[in-house]
Nucleic acid binder design. Structure first.
Lengths: 193, 193
DNA sequence: AAAAAATCTTAAGCTAGTTTAACCCAAATG
DNA sequence: CATTTGGGTTAAACTAGCTTAAGATTTTTT
């Protein structure tokens, strides 16, 4: 099990001691996930926080008309989970699906709570994690209520320079909240500027 | 200083012991805020988490054209802060302004960190607090990328039944991301259904 | 290697939401 | 009490973004 990436990831926040590392390792579950495979489906309770070692995922909602709306992507060294479902134990409305062949490390809620209560550092690290997620989500809300689709597209390119050339424009369109046809128009208009 | 509401508020998460209560009390700063007064302005670092004892606030961004975009409201027993600025110590892009005469209890970052490190319960309570804020923000993002303005308006009324008859439609329009004129149209169309 | 499925683009017609401007009424201010 | 300010509505003209449909290309699956 390749745990080096997640240990390095935590060391960016506040480095882990040897005992914290060995406890963390004992709680992690490694999973190989094929392209198009789901690690969460609508109706299921989200039972794990998922750390991406390699590969790429999207989390999205399917609306009444059957259309997908991307809420989040995750690539190497990123986390993905339906935090709402995870913490409330209620069925999720979301799907998490691999866009590429991927390897992940998962941690269950009881194991996370165990780490929280025995090692305050995990408490702190996960709070910082969610604070950061909150901050970037807040920026996105502001963008959505105040910017044009073109501005949102440019902001996406700027914010995720390692992602945009790895996923299809269909996925980007679904993330910024426009149709693929309109994104195509935007891209043309940007190119001819 | 009227600290009963905040103590009751925390007891909804995980009740505080006597020593936790007295420590919390010693860290709180009470403030009376007049209508239209700011507790945060663009360019300033957000130095406090603010708990609303009575009254009402809006947090918003002013765009290049001078237009306001409401990110959040807070009424009795709610929290308000620019969490991004608070945690990074960077200047805020946001304003927090009282919509009514208000009374608040504020806690500074050093005091919050003190409470975190001495009393794990605050750690837990504030993590749950921010988790909940994250969850409702995520719902809002989904709404913004997948719903019409009318759906967003109806969802706002449903989500904030104690707020919509207390603030102006101009404020609601700014929150759901439409012009006041168009909200007026929406309201008419709903009324004649 | 062939077939199936997904991607990207273009274009015409349509709809949701904006802009500008004017008017009315209620509420805050001097 | 008089006046300014802000809130809510209406309407006409405009624009951003959607829908439907079709065609060319690439990628995935068999």
């Amino acid at each position: 099990m390749n745990t080096a990436p997640i240990i390095k990831h935590f060391s960016n926040y506040s480095p882990l001691s040897d005992s914290e590392i060995s406890e963390l390792k004992s709680k992690l579950i490694e999973k190989k996930v094929k392209r198009r495979q789901f690690i969460l489906q609508e109706g299921d309770v989200c039972k794990h926080y998922t750390f991406v070692v390699s590969g790429c995922f999207k989390m999205y909602k399917v609306d009444d008309k059957g259309q997908e709306h991307n809420l989040q992507f995750a690539i190497e060294n990123g986390w993905i989970a339906d935090i709402g479902s995870f913490h409330t134990d209620k069925p999720s409305e979301l799907y998490i699906e691999a866009l590429e062949q991927s390897i992940v490390l998962q941690i269950s809620k009881p194991d996370l709570i165990y780490l929280y209560s025995h090692y305050p550092k995990f408490d702190r690290n996960f709070r910082v994690l969610i604070e950061n997620a909150f901050i970037s989500l807040q920026k996105r809300v502001l963008q959505n209520i105040s910017s044009t689709a073109e501005e949102r597209y440019l902001y996406f390119l700027k914010s995720y320079p390692n992602l945009f050339n790895r996923i299809s424009n269909v996925q980007i369109a679904s993330y910024i909240g426009v149709t693929p046809e309109f994104l195509s128009k935007i891209r043309k208009s940007i190119a001819t500027k």
